[in-house]
Amino acid sequence: MERLWRVIPVVVTAFAAAFIGWMIQMLRLSWTRNDSWGFTVTVASVVIPIFLVFVWLAVYVMWGIAREGLRENRPGDPAPPRPRPGGTP
């Protein structure tokens, strides 16, 4: 199960890469066909940075949290959840 912690950020990054790839494909088409280059560049240059932020989110936040979850306990860490009286429903 712990392996899946890595899968989620990888999936997010892969999706962002696919989307950016699509944008590049449309830029390429627009260039080769000489078709509405201005629109294509404008939209792509707005959207690609947003997806780079999602990549940052996957790497810094998600991967970072998962890495913290895997490392050894350190003094000062919160105690593991205490068992609840009466057991779990």
């Binding site: 912690w5 810094y60 936040v61 970072g64 949290i65 998962a66 979850g69 350190r74 860490d77 593991p80």
Partner: peptide, 16 residues
């Protein structure tokens, strides 16, 4: 994602 509530995890989550 192996959330344990460590300060580092909190910091990264809240920034995100």
């Amino acid at each position: 994602l192996g959330w344990r509530g460590t300060p580092e995890q909190h910091r990264r989550l809240e920034r995100g």
